[in-house]
């Protein structure tokens, strides 16, 4: 890198040179922490690689780039890189490729866009901001970290592909939108929040769901015996929800015209959750 290019910046492009031998922990490597840094300074930042700390320059080529605000752009297959955007509190991160586990976990503000797929526990305990995954997400997305009580608790989480099992487990606030299929135990133990799914769902959907809303924009699953229909007019809240989801386009674009059936449950867990079945 020439000294002329090694200037202070608040946005950087990081190109992965080779797959790390072990998992690389990118937690804490967020745009706001790098404001005013130089590319060489960024490259000297230490990351955990397995159980040793190594400079990020060992794995990435770093260059400054022009941007409106704090931003990081990663290029390459980051599927062995975990914790990207963990605790993000502002700024933008873009991954042009796949990413590993825990992407966007605990993020509070800002935006993360992943063009590829994400590993396990994406958006777990996310509290704000916007996370979009262009591909699939693994199990336990939008859920809680092992041992914690609450899953995703705010913000907007968009999955363009498929979701793994236990999506939204213990989620309690925020909106999650899944364009593809969802695995087993979707919205299990859901405390609150909204999950909209355009694809098919696996077994035991809504298991132990306490409150919150599930919207099925595509195939309409058969509600389990612990969910019961309510016969009242829900057009007001439905219109508010449908108009909000319409901005995502695709199968969510025309929901407002539908008149959904509503089921409440899980009756084994207070029964204040709802399924909205518009077709």
């Amino acid at each position: 890198m020439s000294p002329a290019n090694d200037r202070d910046a608040n946005a950087f492009r990081l190109r992965l040179r080779a797959q790390p031998a072990l998992r690389l922990d990118l937690a804490g490597f967020v745009p706001q922490a790098l404001g005013g840094e130089t590319p060489s300074g960024v490259a000297r930042r230490a990351l955990w690689h397995g159980n040793e700390q190594v400079p990020i320059g060992e794995f990435f080529d770093v260059e400054a780039m022009a941007a409106d605000g704090p931003e990081l752009v990663f290029e390459g297959d980051l599927s062995r890189c975990d914790g990207l955007g963990r605790g993000l509190d502002g700024g933008r991160i873009r991954v042009e490729g796949d990413v590993g586990d825990y992407v966007g976990s605990g993020m509070r503000a800002g935006e993360i866009v992943v063009t590829g797929s994400a590993g396990l526990l994406a958006a777990c305990e996310m509290a704000g901001g916007r996370l979009e995954v262009g591909g699939d997400v693994g199990d336990y997305a939008a859920s809680a970290l092992p041992g914690d009580m609450d899953g995703m608790r705010g913000g907007l989480f968009i999955v363009r592909g498929k979701a793994g099992a236990r999506f939204g487990d213990r989620m309690r606030r925020g909106t999650a939108v899944v364009f593809g299929d969802a695995g087993d135990f979707l919205a299990s133990r859901l405390v609150a929040g909204t999950i909209a799914v355009a694809g098919a769902v696996g077994a035991h959907c809504g298991y132990g769901m306490r409150r919150g809303t599930l919207i099925f924009a595509g195939p309409q699953p058969e509600p389990p015996p612990t969910f019961v229909p309510t016969g009242h007019d829900v057009q007001v809240i439905w219109t508010l929800l449908a108009r909000s989801l319409a901005v995502h386009g695709g199968p969510f674009a025309a929901l407002a015209a539908a008149r959904p059936r509503r089921f409440v449950g899980d009756l084994a867990a207070d029964g204040k959750g709802e399924w909205l079945l518009p077709a």
């Binding site: 606030r173 925020g174 909106t175 929040g193 909204t194 809303t213 009242h232 007019d233 829900v234 809240i237 508010l240 929800l241 909000s244």
Partner: peptide, 16 residues
């Protein structure tokens, strides 16, 4: 129900 950052309350009443 929180929709786009706005919280709405849904109170059961006799017409819905």
């Amino acid at each position: 129900k929180v929709i786009d950052g706005r919280r709405y309350w849904r109170v059961p009443v006799m017409d819905g």
